[in-house]
Every structure is written in C-alpha cells, then in structure tokens.
Measured scan of single mutants.
Amino acid sequence: DEFHFHWNGRDIRVRGDSEELRRLIEAIKRGELSEEEIERAIEILER
C-alpha cells in the first residue's frame, strides 16, 4: 500500500502498511502532533 497526503505544502508518499503507520498518518491529518514531531516522522517514513 501507499499512503499519500499533503502536509505543509509538501506532497508526501509513504509505502508500507502497518497499524502503526496508519495511526501516525491519522494523527498527522488530525493535527495531533507538533510540527517538529511531524517533520521527524516524515523523515523516517521517507527512507
């Protein structure tokens, strides 16, 4: 699976399928994380 979302003017695409990944992306979409937490998560996910 590939998750695709927009954040902070960026087009983010992440491959993978796990419950943890889904929860993280939902939290990002709901605005539950700080900008710094989101940046760090995206860096890890894009590897």
Results as ranks from 00 to 15, higher is better:
residue 16 G to W: 03
residue 29 K to V: 10
residue 37 E to I: 05
residue 33 L to M: 11
residue 6 H to P: 00
residue 44 I to C: 05
residue 17 D to A: 10
residue 21 L to D: 15
residue 22 R to P: 03
residue 33 L to C: 04
residue 45 L to P: 01
residue 40 R to H: 13
residue 6 H to D: 05
residue 43 E to K: 10
residue 1 D to M: 04
residue 7 W to T: 03
residue 11 D to S: 15
residue 28 I to Q: 02
residue 39 E to H: 11
residue 46 E to R: 04
residue 41 A to Q: 13
residue 34 S to C: 07
residue 1 D to I: 05
residue 24 L to N: 01
residue 25 I to T: 05
residue 38 I to W: 05
residue 25 I to K: 02
residue 44 I to K: 14
residue 41 A to P: 00
residue 31 G to S: 04
residue 47 R to M: 12
residue 34 S to N: 11
residue 28 I to L: 07
residue 9 G to Y: 00
residue 17 D to Q: 06
residue 46 E to I: 13
residue 46 E to W: 02
residue 30 R to C: 05
residue 45 L to E: 02
residue 7 W to L: 08
residue 30 R to F: 12
residue 44 I to D: 11
residue 36 E to Q: 14
residue 22 R to A: 07
residue 8 N to A: 05
residue 6 H to W: 02
residue 17 D to G: 11
residue 23 R to M: 14
residue 26 E to G: 11
residue 9 G to K: 02
residue 39 E to Q: 07
residue 13 R to E: 09
residue 43 E to M: 05
residue 23 R to Q: 10
residue 20 E to C: 13
residue 1 D to H: 07
residue 24 L to C: 03
residue 17 D to S: 12
residue 22 R to F: 09
residue 37 E to P: 01
residue 1 D to Y: 03
residue 14 V to M: 06
residue 38 I to C: 02
residue 9 G to N: 06
residue 29 K to I: 07
residue 6 H to C: 04
residue 11 D to K: 15
residue 32 E to G: 10
residue 15 R to E: 09
residue 11 D to A: 15
residue 31 G to H: 15
residue 18 S to R: 07
residue 43 E to F: 01
residue 24 L to P: 00
residue 35 E to H: 15
residue 47 R to L: 09
residue 47 R to Y: 03
residue 14 V to K: 00
residue 25 I to S: 04
residue 33 L to A: 04
residue 43 E to T: 09
residue 22 R to D: 05
residue 46 E to M: 12
residue 41 A to D: 04
residue 4 H to Q: 03
residue 42 I to G: 01
residue 36 E to N: 13
residue 42 I to W: 04
residue 22 R to I: 15
residue 21 L to S: 12
residue 35 E to Q: 13
residue 43 E to Q: 14
residue 31 G to W: 04
residue 42 I to V: 11
residue 23 R to C: 11
residue 14 V to G: 05
residue 31 G to Q: 08
residue 20 E to D: 14
residue 37 E to Q: 15
residue 9 G to W: 00
residue 27 A to N: 14
residue 5 F to C: 02
residue 32 E to W: 08
residue 40 R to D: 06
residue 4 H to A: 02
residue 44 I to T: 15
residue 23 R to S: 14
residue 37 E to A: 15
residue 17 D to F: 06
residue 31 G to L: 06
residue 13 R to N: 13
residue 5 F to L: 03
residue 47 R to C: 06
residue 42 I to L: 08
residue 27 A to Y: 07
residue 9 G to S: 01
residue 4 H to Y: 05
residue 39 E to N: 14
residue 28 I to R: 01
residue 16 G to L: 05
residue 41 A to E: 08
residue 46 E to D: 09
residue 8 N to I: 02
residue 24 L to T: 05
residue 22 R to M: 13
residue 2 E to R: 01
residue 6 H to N: 05
residue 12 I to G: 00
residue 43 E to Y: 01
residue 2 E to D: 15
residue 7 W to R: 02
residue 38 I to P: 00
residue 28 I to D: 01
residue 45 L to K: 01
residue 36 E to M: 13
residue 38 I to S: 03
residue 38 I to Y: 03
residue 43 E to R: 07
residue 19 E to S: 10
residue 2 E to Y: 05
residue 1 D to E: 12
residue 18 S to K: 07
residue 37 E to W: 07
residue 26 E to C: 08
residue 27 A to H: 09
residue 27 A to C: 03
residue 44 I to S: 12
residue 22 R to V: 11
residue 13 R to T: 14
residue 9 G to D: 13
residue 43 E to H: 10
residue 34 S to W: 04
residue 6 H to A: 01
residue 18 S to P: 09
residue 1 D to W: 01
residue 3 F to R: 01
residue 47 R to F: 03
residue 9 G to L: 00
residue 40 R to S: 09
residue 14 V to S: 03
residue 22 R to K: 12
residue 8 N to D: 04
residue 25 I to Y: 06
residue 2 E to T: 03
residue 32 E to V: 09
residue 45 L to R: 01
residue 40 R to G: 10
residue 36 E to A: 15
residue 26 E to M: 07
residue 16 G to V: 15
residue 20 E to T: 09
residue 19 E to Y: 07
residue 17 D to N: 11
residue 43 E to L: 04
residue 1 D to G: 08
residue 29 K to L: 08
residue 28 I to G: 01
residue 19 E to A: 11
residue 23 R to W: 12
residue 25 I to L: 09
residue 37 E to M: 14
residue 1 D to R: 02
residue 11 D to P: 11
residue 7 W to A: 04
residue 7 W to C: 06
residue 7 W to F: 10
residue 39 E to I: 09
residue 10 R to A: 07
residue 30 R to S: 15
residue 28 I to V: 06
residue 46 E to K: 04
residue 45 L to T: 04
residue 17 D to C: 03
residue 44 I to E: 12
residue 36 E to G: 10
residue 46 E to C: 05
residue 3 F to V: 03
residue 12 I to M: 03
residue 27 A to T: 14
residue 33 L to S: 04
residue 36 E to L: 15
residue 24 L to E: 00
residue 4 H to L: 04
residue 40 R to Y: 12
residue 8 N to P: 01
residue 39 E to M: 13
residue 34 S to G: 10
residue 28 I to A: 04
residue 44 I to F: 15
residue 41 A to I: 15
residue 29 K to N: 12
residue 9 G to A: 00
residue 36 E to C: 06
residue 12 I to C: 02
residue 2 E to G: 06
residue 21 L to T: 14
residue 21 L to P: 04
residue 43 E to P: 09
residue 2 E to A: 02
residue 8 N to K: 14
residue 34 S to L: 08
residue 5 F to Q: 00
residue 7 W to P: 00
residue 26 E to T: 11
residue 28 I to E: 01
residue 29 K to S: 10
residue 32 E to P: 02
residue 3 F to W: 15
residue 5 F to K: 00
residue 17 D to Y: 05
residue 31 G to K: 14
residue 42 I to M: 06
residue 10 R to T: 06
residue 18 S to H: 09
residue 8 N to F: 02
residue 21 L to G: 12
residue 14 V to Q: 01
residue 21 L to E: 09
residue 19 E to P: 15
residue 32 E to H: 10
residue 14 V to H: 02
residue 3 F to N: 03
residue 35 E to K: 12
residue 13 R to W: 06
residue 33 L to W: 12
residue 34 S to Y: 06
residue 36 E to I: 14
residue 18 S to T: 15
residue 9 G to H: 01
residue 3 F to D: 05
residue 30 R to D: 07
residue 47 R to I: 13
residue 34 S to F: 08
residue 22 R to W: 09
residue 14 V to R: 00
residue 47 R to S: 14
residue 38 I to D: 00
residue 44 I to G: 13
residue 16 G to K: 06
residue 28 I to P: 00
residue 47 R to P: 10
residue 26 E to W: 02
residue 10 R to K: 13
residue 27 A to I: 10
residue 24 L to Q: 02
residue 15 R to V: 12
residue 42 I to Q: 01
residue 47 R to K: 12
residue 45 L to V: 07
residue 34 S to E: 08
residue 9 G to P: 00
residue 22 R to E: 06
residue 40 R to T: 08
residue 8 N to L: 05
residue 6 H to M: 02
residue 24 L to H: 02
residue 26 E to R: 10
residue 45 L to Y: 07
residue 11 D to G: 03
residue 1 D to S: 04
residue 3 F to L: 07
residue 14 V to Y: 09
residue 23 R to E: 09
residue 30 R to A: 11
residue 10 R to Y: 00
residue 34 S to M: 14
residue 13 R to A: 08
residue 18 S to L: 07
residue 16 G to C: 03
residue 5 F to S: 00
residue 35 E to S: 14
residue 34 S to Q: 13
residue 34 S to R: 08
residue 3 F to S: 01
residue 12 I to R: 01
